[in-house]
């Protein structure tokens, strides 16, 4: 670690991870000063709850950015997988165990992701535009052919899942907190993705493709297979995030989730992933998610009215990506 710092002293102190971490700490400090109750187990558990779905999405989106693409369809994948699974379960086996329900949703998500995968990996279509297209195809299909009604009578096992907690209790101040098992899903996704990215040839190939597509082909990486995997994996993660979202919210709402994609990409980009591909870390992504969640939930605590939430997130994106971009531009001008 020290060697890396020695090698990239500038890179470390101006990296997005550091920048975002500093902003988060500052945010928490100001929040605690203005409201001492802010810094509590309750807040932490609330924020953690709120970041499960966004966090899983963000990890998927980061993976796509690393591979050199961009995906905006994952929210539609999530909502489709979740809703179809719920409808299927209610229709055929309402008492289906929760893990089976989850598996089906993940599988459906992977299948929808595979459609993106075919279009991008096989036909080489531009990723932003393809996924904009599949976003509306998936959602349009769901709402037209599967259903457009909110379902609040979920299969009992899904409701049961939301009640499964790792820890719960009441603080001395009398406020209630709980840490659901769904958090474990996020942890699981983080560990699995870390393992794939850092420890497997497949993961390194994802970085390699993002770094240079042409070189990857020449070295003999099966570029199509790797890209296909990326979109299938993202789809699977979306399926998981979708079913968790429905279980935790105790409602399968076919109109939910879509619209979140920009916040997710904002979080990932804040965390230092670059649109050109090849760069992105899990730490950065999680920090980015934490910051977005803080802004979405606790803006009022630092004295900014919540109607300014969009402006704040927008400014964060502009500043958070603008500073490194500007520095890079200056450095390039200087070196030349």
């Amino acid at each position: 670690m020290t060697r890396i710092i020695k090698l990239f002293p500038k890179g470390f102190f101006t990296s997005n991870e550091t920048l975002v971490a500093v902003v988060i700490i500052a945010f928490c400090a100001i929040a605690t000063l203005s409201d001492p109750l802010f810094f509590s187990v309750t807040t932490v558990s609330d924020l953690l709850r709120a970041s499960i779905v966004l966090g899983i999405f963000a990890i998927g989106a980061m993976l796509v950015l690393v591979s050199g693409g961009i995906d905006v369809s994952f929210t539609a994948v999530a909502v489709s997988a979740m809703y179809m699974t719920t409808v299927f379960s209610l229709g055929f086996w309402p008492d289906m165990p929760w893990y089976l329900i989850f598996t089906i949703s993940i599988f459906l998500g992977a299948c929808l992701g595979a459609i993106n995968g075919v279009l991008i990996a096989l036909f080489g279509l531009p990723t932003l535009i393809v996924t904009l297209g599949t976003l509306s195809v998936f959602r349009g299909f769901l709402l037209t052919f599967v259903g457009s009604e909110r379902i609040s009578a979920l299969p009992p096992e899904m409701r049961g899942f939301s009640r499964m907690v790792i820890a719960r209790g009441t603080t001395e101040g009398g406020s209630f907190y709980s840490l659901p098992w769904a958090v474990a899903a996020l942890v699981f996704v983080v560990v699995l993705t870390w393992f794939i990215l850092q420890k497997t040839v497949l993961g390194r190939s994802i970085f390699a493709i993002g770094g240079s597509l042409e070189s990857a082909r020449r070295v003999g990486i099966n570029v199509r297979a790797v890209q296909f995997f990326v979109y299938v994996y993202v789809g699977a993660l979306a399926g998981l995030a979708g079913i968790i979202h429905a279980s935790m919210g105790r409602m399968a709402d076919p109109f939910s989730l879509v619209g979140l994609e920009l916040s997710v990409i904002a979080a990932v980009v804040l965390g230092g992933a670059r649109l050109i591909g090849g760069y992105g870390t899990l730490t950065g992504t999680l920090l980015g998610v934490a910051l977005i969640i803080l802004v979405q939930n606790s803006l009022i605590v630092v004295g900014i009215p919540s109607t300014w939430q969009s402006v704040t997130i927008g400014m964060l994106i502009l500043v958070g990506t603008g500073i490194p971009a500007y520095q890079a531009k200056r450095a390039a001008a200087k070196a030349a």
């Binding site: 190939s205 990857a216 020449r218």
Partner: peptide, 22 residues
């Protein structure tokens, strides 16, 4: 090739060993 076909974002060690591992 003239452009070397390397991966700019990977380390020297990874670049050298990538094909072998593949």
């Amino acid at each position: 090739f003239q452009d070397f076909s390397l991966f700019p974002n990977l380390s020297v060690a990874e670049n050298i060993a990538f094909s072998t591992q593949l």
